[in-house]
Simulated scan of single mutants.
Amino acid sequence: MRDLDNKDLRGRSLLRFASPQVFYPVAGLLAPWFAGIAAVLTVIGLYIGFFVAPTDFQQGEVYRVIFIHVPAAWMSMLVYLVMAFWSAVGLVMNTRLSFMMARALAPTGAIFCFIALWTGALWGKPTWGTYWVWDARLTSQLLLLFLYLGYMALTEAIEDARRADRAGAIIALVGAINVPIIYFSVQWWNTLHQGASVSITKAPTMATTMLMGMLIMAIAAWAYTIAVAFWRVRPIILERERHTDWVGAELERLGSR
């Protein structure tokens, strides 16, 4: 019985972070730490990728774009799934902060998606002889960018915040179907895009140094995403909760600086 009581207390203590008032200062406290981690890991990852990793025997030096391209592509898909998760939580549990987190994540996911497409084009020109082909992987990745842009445009166009949250959540949840299509497209269709170099079920097909640099860059991208999302959600919270007493006190404190 005592163990059940302790679990219930821990559950309640975690649920309190679903309150925008409680989460606001926590986000402000953690964001600089994640930003610092992202900066350090980015420097290390880029150094390994561009100065330590060996030259690829097939692609030469141009392959080094993967140290930016692959983590960006991973994050563009992962961020969208996290957006869909928070949207589902918001719809089911009616938690305001969940919708705010989804909105805070969207611009970062869109940037990563654009970087993945842009760096993929830079890699494609010397490899395929063209910047763009209507390949299954590229086309589904481009669709992901349109989903991000559509989500942001729709949530900004609807003045009523609750309606905007629910409309955006529907786009996020429906669009999540595209993420496994992106990932498995190289297996499902005849595509120019190479298969995954890193797999859970298979040994990596690249040198250890290359893999290390790529994974460090992926962790850096994740830390950056958390930092920016925390910084971005704070003004969203202040805007949404502007009629509450605690926001009035916080704005006064910020204005007195």
Score class of each variant (00 low, 15 high):
residue 128 W to D: 03
residue 3 D to F: 15
residue 229 A to R: 03
residue 226 I to C: 06
residue 218 A to F: 09
residue 78 L to G: 12
residue 190 N to P: 07
residue 253 R to C: 00
residue 63 Y to N: 13
residue 157 A to Y: 11
residue 209 T to H: 04
residue 150 G to D: 11
residue 257 R to A: 09
residue 12 R to L: 14
residue 181 I to N: 03
residue 155 T to L: 01
residue 201 T to D: 13
residue 139 T to K: 10
residue 168 G to H: 12
residue 201 T to C: 09
residue 6 N to Y: 13
residue 63 Y to K: 14
residue 251 L to K: 13
residue 180 P to Q: 02
residue 240 R to H: 13
residue 210 M to E: 04
residue 91 L to D: 05
residue 239 E to H: 13
residue 17 F to S: 06
residue 108 T to F: 12
residue 223 A to D: 04
residue 51 F to K: 08
residue 224 Y to S: 08
residue 14 L to C: 06
residue 238 L to W: 04
residue 170 I to Y: 12
residue 94 N to S: 11
residue 42 T to S: 09
residue 217 M to S: 07
residue 241 E to R: 14
residue 252 E to W: 08
residue 169 A to S: 14
residue 54 P to N: 04
residue 166 R to N: 12
residue 245 D to H: 14
residue 148 Y to I: 11
residue 122 L to Y: 05
residue 70 V to W: 00
residue 117 L to S: 01
residue 7 K to G: 03
residue 233 V to L: 13
residue 250 E to L: 04
residue 192 L to H: 07
residue 36 G to K: 05
residue 83 M to P: 06
residue 210 M to R: 02
residue 119 T to Q: 08
residue 248 G to P: 05
residue 156 E to K: 15
residue 65 V to W: 11
residue 255 G to M: 02
residue 181 I to E: 00
residue 146 F to K: 11
residue 150 G to L: 05
residue 96 R to A: 04
residue 170 I to S: 13
residue 162 R to K: 15
residue 122 L to T: 08
residue 181 I to K: 05
residue 211 L to D: 06
residue 77 M to I: 04
residue 98 S to G: 07
residue 225 T to L: 10
residue 114 F to M: 15
residue 38 A to S: 03
residue 86 W to Q: 11
residue 24 Y to T: 00
residue 113 C to P: 03
residue 167 A to Q: 12
residue 12 R to P: 08
residue 143 L to T: 15
residue 165 D to I: 02
residue 16 R to L: 14
residue 112 F to H: 02
residue 2 R to D: 13
residue 154 L to Q: 09
residue 149 L to Y: 11
residue 138 L to Y: 12
residue 21 Q to R: 15
residue 150 G to A: 07
residue 28 G to K: 06
residue 32 P to H: 11
residue 6 N to H: 12
residue 187 Q to W: 09
residue 67 F to D: 00
residue 220 A to C: 02
residue 130 T to E: 12
residue 129 G to P: 09
residue 83 M to H: 03
residue 238 L to C: 03
residue 68 I to A: 03
residue 126 P to H: 04
residue 179 V to N: 09
residue 13 S to P: 02
residue 113 C to Y: 04
residue 216 I to N: 00
residue 41 L to D: 01
residue 186 V to A: 04
residue 18 A to G: 15
residue 127 T to H: 05
residue 87 S to V: 06
residue 241 E to I: 01
residue 231 W to E: 11
residue 191 T to G: 04
residue 228 V to F: 14
residue 168 G to T: 10
residue 111 I to Q: 00
residue 209 T to C: 04
residue 168 G to K: 11
residue 163 R to N: 15
residue 207 A to K: 08
residue 115 I to D: 01
residue 252 E to A: 13
residue 4 L to P: 00
residue 206 M to C: 07
residue 167 A to G: 06
residue 115 I to E: 01
residue 240 R to C: 09
residue 188 W to F: 10
residue 10 R to N: 07
residue 232 R to L: 12
residue 256 S to R: 14
residue 20 P to Y: 02
residue 177 I to V: 15
residue 23 F to E: 01
residue 225 T to C: 10
residue 37 I to T: 09
residue 81 L to M: 13
residue 76 S to K: 00
residue 228 V to S: 11
residue 214 M to C: 11
residue 5 D to V: 10
residue 165 D to T: 07
residue 155 T to I: 01
residue 112 F to G: 00
residue 212 M to W: 12
residue 145 L to W: 15
residue 175 G to V: 06
residue 171 I to C: 05
residue 53 A to H: 01
residue 34 F to V: 03
residue 161 A to S: 14
residue 167 A to T: 10
residue 227 A to D: 07
residue 210 M to L: 09
residue 197 S to F: 06
residue 110 A to M: 14
